[in-house]
Computed example of a mutant assay.
Amino acid sequence: MDENISNKIRWQQLLRYQLIEIMALWEGRLITNHLTGAFGIGRQQASKDINAYKELYPTNLTYDKKVKGYVPTSEFQVHFAQGAANEYLHLLNGNEALRRVFEKSEMPSSYTEILGVPDRTISPDILRPIIKACREKLRLDITYCSMTNPYGEDRIISPHSLVFSGVRWHVRAYCEKHRSYRDFVINRIMSVDDEMGGAIEDDKNDDIWYRYVDIEIVPNPNFNSAQQSLIARDYNMHNGVMKLSCRAALVQYLLDNSRVFFGEVTSQTYDHLVLKNRGNLLRYIL
């Protein structure tokens, strides 16, 4: 972003301009409701913000009567946003997606550092139709790569939700090849080849997505009592157990991210955390 422009704009305005770019880039449509909903401002103020942004970068947005909103032009470039998919996806997830803008303001610098994972490239051309399919319940013809099929194969999917596993983003979708709901790694979708009308499977049939299960995690019983007490304190366990509730479809991700050992515990198990109610959750562990 041009520092001369940045220095002349209040940080609240920088946030609004950043949101304008994020929504235009990743959803392919910007409407005043995006600003009114995010910042609690009136439609008149939102329109002023959009017009002010267009005065700064007149070739970035154009009004499209069909979608009743502004769409990015072929010359669109980000000036206030990062242009990375995680910025939009974390915004959906309620994380601190706007922290970068605060760093450009005159607010006091933080004495903290957050270690992030390497960003996995996701193209707007891939993400836009997936978001649209989730919202409008559509079928998509995609080319998907996997370790067993690294060159890609055709899949017809009906997406309903985006999932951040803690490391990368997936789309939860009905797969017509396997006739079941699956998670597809978004950055392994090489292309979205076609929209194929409405979804043929109601996402309410994704039973394990809508089912919540209890997870019980305990310190490794191979450790001595003092070590177990230390681990219990680290994780704020009550009576030596950490209880979590999770969508059944996401149990594997939660265990992996929390570094919980979910196999049969033996004398050779050295992990700090183990799964107590393993028998109840086996069907959800890949």
Results as ranks from 00 to 15, higher is better:
2 D>P: 07
2 D>S: 10
3 E>K: 11
3 E>T: 09
5 I>T: 12
9 I>C: 06
9 I>Y: 06
10 R>H: 13
12 Q>Y: 15
13 Q>V: 13
25 L>T: 10
25 L>Q: 15
25 L>I: 12
27 E>A: 08
29 R>W: 04
29 R>A: 11
30 L>S: 05
31 I>Q: 12
33 N>P: 00
36 T>R: 05
39 F>A: 04
39 F>Q: 04
40 G>V: 01
41 I>G: 02
49 D>Y: 15
52 A>M: 08
52 A>W: 03
53 Y>E: 03
55 E>R: 12
57 Y>T: 03
58 P>V: 13
60 N>S: 14
61 L>F: 04
63 Y>W: 14
64 D>V: 05
66 K>V: 14
68 K>N: 14
76 F>N: 06
76 F>Q: 03
76 F>G: 03
80 F>R: 00
82 Q>D: 05
83 G>M: 03
90 H>G: 11
90 H>E: 14
91 L>K: 06
94 G>N: 05
95 N>H: 09
95 N>F: 10
96 E>R: 13
97 A>R: 00
98 L>C: 12
100 R>H: 15
100 R>T: 15
104 K>T: 11
107 M>P: 00
110 S>Y: 09
112 T>L: 13
112 T>I: 11
113 E>P: 00
116 G>A: 08
119 D>S: 09
121 T>I: 13
122 I>F: 04
125 D>W: 08
125 D>V: 09
126 I>L: 08
127 L>C: 05
130 I>F: 04
132 K>Q: 12
134 C>Y: 01
134 C>R: 01
134 C>S: 05
135 R>E: 13
135 R>S: 12
137 K>C: 01
139 R>K: 15
139 R>S: 15
139 R>I: 06
141 D>N: 15
142 I>Y: 04
143 T>N: 10
144 Y>C: 06
146 S>P: 00
148 T>V: 06
152 G>H: 04
153 E>P: 00
156 I>V: 15
159 P>T: 06
160 H>D: 10
161 S>A: 15
163 V>G: 01
163 V>S: 05
164 F>K: 02
165 S>R: 02
166 G>L: 05
171 V>W: 00
171 V>K: 00
172 R>N: 02
176 E>A: 06
181 Y>N: 02
183 D>A: 06
186 I>Q: 02
189 I>D: 01
189 I>G: 03
190 M>K: 15
192 V>N: 01
192 V>D: 01
197 G>D: 10
198 G>P: 00
198 G>R: 08
199 A>W: 01
203 D>F: 15
203 D>L: 09
206 D>V: 07
213 V>A: 07
214 D>T: 13
215 I>G: 04
215 I>A: 06
219 P>C: 10
220 N>D: 10
221 P>N: 04
222 N>A: 09
223 F>W: 07
224 N>H: 09
224 N>G: 13
224 N>I: 06
226 A>M: 10
227 Q>M: 11
228 Q>W: 10
237 M>P: 07
238 H>W: 13
238 H>P: 04
239 N>E: 14
240 G>V: 02
241 V>Y: 02
241 V>T: 07
243 K>P: 00
245 S>P: 02
257 N>I: 07
261 F>K: 04
264 E>G: 09
265 V>H: 03
266 T>K: 08
268 Q>N: 14
268 Q>T: 13
269 T>W: 12
270 Y>M: 11
271 D>T: 08
272 H>Q: 15
273 L>D: 07
273 L>Y: 07
280 N>G: 03
282 L>A: 09
282 L>K: 13
282 L>N: 11
282 L>Y: 03
282 L>W: 04
283 R>Y: 02
286 L>F: 10
